[in-house]
Amino acid sequence: MEFRVTGQKIDPAQLILAIGDTRVGACVTFEGRVRRQNEGRSVLSLDYEAFKPLAEKEGQRILEEARQKFGVLDAVCVHRTGSLKLGDLAVWIAITAEHRGAAFDACRYVIDEAKARVPIWKKEHYGDGSTEWINCATRGPGVSGPGPAG
């Protein structure tokens, strides 16, 4: 059970080798990637910034909650910081369980909670040269409702 924040490229093929044992009947993984478009704007690149000690602590709490709620066997999440290009992996999650239902549910729980609670920030660079810290606008449609999906 580990939540890690890293400035290094995420390598799922390497990470998956450490996941699971013969109790496992289901392994669900999730990849969050840098998309070329957000809210109708053309995205060129992203910067991620983290408050690392608290991000890893809060992330660990989320993984522990997932274990308690869904009875999963293991949960691992790795999140990038730094400058990312289109197509780069921003976040990777692996959940193992005896059965698929718990693994799918826990994976969804971990990514949703991580996006809402873990102190990591995303700055988008757009095709028109402008930039924006996502969810940090002080006016406009994003302010009262939930932030844009990522």
């Binding site: 873990v118 995303k122 969810n135």
Partner: peptide, 10 residues
């Protein structure tokens, strides 16, 4: 002390 704006990971 750290001041944390609205988060946006993932």
């Amino acid at each position: 002390i750290a001041f944390l704006p609205p988060v946006a990971g993932g």
